[in-house]
């Protein structure tokens, strides 16, 4: 076991991990931030997407130790300071961009990364950017609509 330290959602955190401890395990188990979900074991579904150093990554495909010293944002860090839903989160609610909610944290984190890179994406750009996030409920229609609304907000 070794100690890993990083900043998660603006707070400095540390914990004891093994070499094989994934970042997703660390946030879920050590930090009890269970909004980050695990939907596959082949790095395809994107339910675990978080930001590391401002970039979207699949937290199930990076070891916690590799994030040593990084700034990590999870879905729990996306709300406004007063606790209300952030712009993208609110757009998802307004546009029914989620049903069961399981893929949603990853979708929101990917959407945030997209809008950071490209504040006014086209529908095609949104759909292509979401290539690594699988949703089984919505058919993506309202997810795309939500991201468009967030871009316009």
């Amino acid at each position: 076991m070794s100690t890993v330290t990083m900043t998660v959602n603006g707070k400095s955190v540390s914990g004891e991990v093994e070499g094989r401890t994934l970042l997703s395990d660390f946030v879920r188990n050590n930090l009890n931030l269970t909004g980050t979900h695990i939907g596959c074991d082949t790095s395809q579904c994107g339910a675990c997407v978080v930001h590391v150093g401002g970039k979207a990554v699949k937290s199930c495909t990076i070891f916690a130790i590799e994030a040593e010293g990084s700034s990590v944002t999870t879905i729990e860090g996306m709300a406004n300071p007063d606790g209300s839903l952030g712009t993208i989160q609110q757009a998802f609610q307004d546009n029914h961009g989620l049903q069961c909610g399981f893929c949603t944290p990853g979708m929101v984190m990917s959407a945030a990364a997209l809008l950071e890179e490209n504040p006014n994406p086209t529908e095609t750009e949104i759909r292509e950017y979401l290539e690594g996030n699988i949703c089984r409920c919505t058919g993506y229609h309202n997810i795309v609509k939500s991201i468009q609304a967030a871009a316009a907000a």
């Binding site: 909004g35 839903l85 989620l98 949603t104």
Partner: peptide, 8 residues
């Protein structure tokens, strides 16, 4: 949605 979107 509020709890799903906030990771709760």
């Amino acid at each position: 949605d509020v709890r799903f979107l906030s990771g709760n």
